[in-house]
Design a binder for these strands. Sequence first.
DNA 1: GTAGGGTTACAG
DNA 2: CTGTAACCCTAC
Length: 530
Amino acid sequence: MDEEISKWILEFLLRQPIDERIINGVLSSLPLKDDDNRLKKTLLLRKIEFDVSNAAISEKLLDLLEIIEELDHREGKSASDSMKAAYCAVAVDCTVRFLDENVERNGKYFEAVKRVWRERVCKIEGLASDESKQKMVEIEAALWDSNACGKLLRMNTRSEASKLVRVYLAEEWRSMGPTFLELVAEKAGNVLEGLRSGGGVGGEAVGSANPGRESAAVGAETRKGQAAVRRKHIAMKSKRGRGAKISAVDEGNGDELMGKADSIPAPEVDRVPAPIESSSLELQASKKVDRPGAQTAQTSSKGMDDMNSKTLVENQTCPKMHATPEVERVQEALKSSSMELQAAVRDPLPDALQTAQTLCSTVATNNRSSKSPVVNQPGLETHTPPRACTDNDKENAEKKENSAQDLQGNEAHRGMTLRNTRRTLMEPDGTAQTFQWSESIDDLPGGTPKRPRLPSPKEDRPSPVKYYADTKIIRRRVRKKWTPEEEDALRTGVQKFGKGNWKLILHSYREIFRERTDVDLKDKWRNMTR
DNA sequence: GTAGGGTTACAG
DNA sequence: CTGTAACCCTAC
C-alpha cells in the first residue's frame, strides 16, 4: 500500500476509539516511514489518552509528554501552558504518592523527589514553568516540614493530574485539526448535501468541526462559524502537498469537485483509487467495532446533519454496500481528488536513482575516454544528495565543473575523483553529517513498524531550574547531637570490634545508631579521642 | 568501606 | 568571632 495512504488511514484510525490490538495490527501491517512527526504525535497523544482514561497516572506519562515536547521543539514549537501544567501535575502525583505523613519515614518519597524532579523535571527546560518551580519548593519542603507534608497529603494530586492532562489533550487535538480522511469526507458531505438539496453546494460542511474528537451532533450554526477554520486546515494540508486540489475546490463551490470527477477519463478513475479501495477493505476487515451512530449514505437530507465524517469515509470505502447514484458520483469525486493528490505528492526516489545512474554512466564514459592518471582530490568531492536535476542544478553543476577544471585541468579528473571517493552516490559518505530521528516507530529493517521508544539522551539544554534543584535538594542533614547512649554504644563497639570497623559497629547497634552512618561513627570517634 | 581534610551549624 | 561538633567530599 502507498505510504501516504497508509499515513492517512493510520492517522484517522488513531483518532478513533478502536481496540488497541487493532491499532497495533494496523501499525505492523502498513508501510510507514519515519518522517511524519504529526503521525508520531498522534500516536503519543493516543497513548496518553489511553493511560488517563484508565486512571494510569505514572512516570510513563512524563516520558510521553517529554517525547512530544521534543517533537514540538524540533519543529520550533514551544510547549503550551496546558502541556506544562499537565506535566507538572503528573510529576507532583508521581511524587506525592510516596509521601508519608511521618517525615522520618519518607525514604521512598525522597527517592521519588530525586528521580522525578531532580533527574527529570528540572532537566526539561521546555516544560519548566513558574508553577513547576513553585511546586518543587513545596515538594522539597515536605521532606523535612511536616506542615508542608500535610498540605501535600490533603491534595488530590491524582485527580488534578488527570484533569490537567485531559485539558491538555483536548487542546492538542483541537490544534491538530481533523485528519486528512475526515477532511476528504467532509468535502464529500458538502457534495452530497448539495445533491440532495438539488441546488448549489455551498461551503457549509457536514460533520463535526473537529471530527476526530467532538460529537457529531454539532449545530448547523456552529458549523457555519467554523467553516473558515476548516479551510485553514485544508490550506495547511495543501502546503504539505497533500490536498492542493481539494483546497482549490473548497474556495469555490462543491460542483467543481463533481466537475473534475466527471472530466477525468474513466480508466484513470478506475485505476488510481485501487490502493484506497484495498486499504479500506483491509480496514473494514480489521474494524470489528460497530458504531451505533453510523449511518449509510442513503440517509435522508435531514439525517445528513447527524452523519459524522467517519460514516462518510466508510461509505467512500465500501462502494458495493451503498450503490445509489449519488454515492457513486461522490465516490468518483473522491477517487479523482485522490488521484490528483497522488500526482501532487511525487516520490523523489525514482528521479534520484535515475540521476545517480546517469552520473555513474557519465563517470564510466569519462573513465574510458580519459587516459589521465587517477588522482584522489578529497577537496573536490561532491556530496549533493541525489535528486532530479533542475535548470539551477545544471547551472550550479557547470560552475562547479568550471572551478574543478581550474584546479585540475579537465573534466575527466572530476569524474575520476568522484569515482574514487565513493563507488556510487548511494554509498555512505564518510565525510557527511547525518541527523536522524533514531527513536522511530518503524525503524526496523524493511520498514517493519514497532512501538515507540523513549528518546535517546536529549541535547544538553541547560535548565534554569537545575542549579536551583542541585543546591536545594542535596542539602545537609539536620544537625543532630550525639546522645550519651550513642556515645556509650560507640565506646563499647570500639572496645569490642576495634577502631576502624565502623560498619560492623553500626550494624551491631543499629537500634541505637538510628540515623547515623558509619562515617558518622568514625567522625564521632575522632572527636571523642581528640 | 575507611581515612582524612574540608565545610557548615551552632553555642558561648 | 571563635571553637567545636556534626556532616560532607573524595582519594585510596
